[in-house]
Amino acid sequence: MSAAALPFRRQLLWQKLTGAGFALPAFLLLLALHVVPLLVLAGLSFTDYELGVVTFEWVGLDNYAQAFSDEVFRRSLVNTLYYVAIVLPGSVILSLLVAVLVHQRKRTRSFYEIIYFLPVTSTLIAMATVWQFLLHPSLGVINAALRKLGFGEVPFLSDPDLALPTLAMIGIWQLVGFNMILFLAGLSSIPRDLYEASAIDGVGNGVDRFLTITWPLLGPTTLFVIVTTSITAFKVFDTVAVMTKGGPQGATEVILYAIYLEGFYYFRTAYASVLTLVFLTFVVIFSVIQTFVLDRRTHY
């Protein structure tokens, strides 16, 4: 080794140490706030720990076995997926439609943007209370209107068949504004030239224009909206906790509400850990789809 190489190597090492030093605080925070709690969570899922109890014992996969044979958990998982299946297409298609319509407005555009975005800015817990009043069978405005129109009373929240779809409608109402903003951003990034060129090339009507230019070029935006909407819908909790508490007859039991009940109502921390891990698995799957598919096929 030459004499000159040694100081150079020492300098390189020093640079690496400096870099690591700068990264260290963020790394420690990540460790303390994300990684360690996750490991603790995973560890707890193999025990019989309950909140407040001093000792615990290892029970192996007992909690998992119980979870997957538990009727309530299975129902809450199915209900959650059912909820996602309504909210996802509903809010994506509706927000795309709204965005395309709002985008063509010139003077009134910001007015519509604000109107549709208002639900996003509100606190869902508070709004859920408002919705509960609106939907109330005897006191609510909506049923009063239905009675006036001769449809009779609809028990939105107390009919097991209607409760979850009703919550899904509120979920769509809350998400449309946010998705609309994302779609509007996507629409703005489509060059006007392309619409003009296509008009000359014979893309005459709105449907053709949408299918030939708008929809394909919104592909990246759409995928992003789908993934974020899936995750948000999967996390449904506020409306259930305020309006139905899982009822009627378990028709609106969803994953996050089940976790909340097990962990903070019955204090079965270990069992709640298992449910949390299942929940996280779904979120990770959505995120992985976003990361890989989004990066792969969306750059023109």
């Binding site: 003009e196 060129a197 008009a199 030939t212 230019i213 394909p216 070029l217 023109y300």
Partner: peptide
């Protein structure tokens, strides 16, 4: 007449090719 009915074709400064 609408643009495509006019028997005209246009080349744009930005070319305006359909990227997808």
């Amino acid at each position: 007449l609408r643009p495509h009915e006019r028997r005209v074709a246009m080349v744009f400064q930005s070319y305006a090719l359909y990227p997808h």
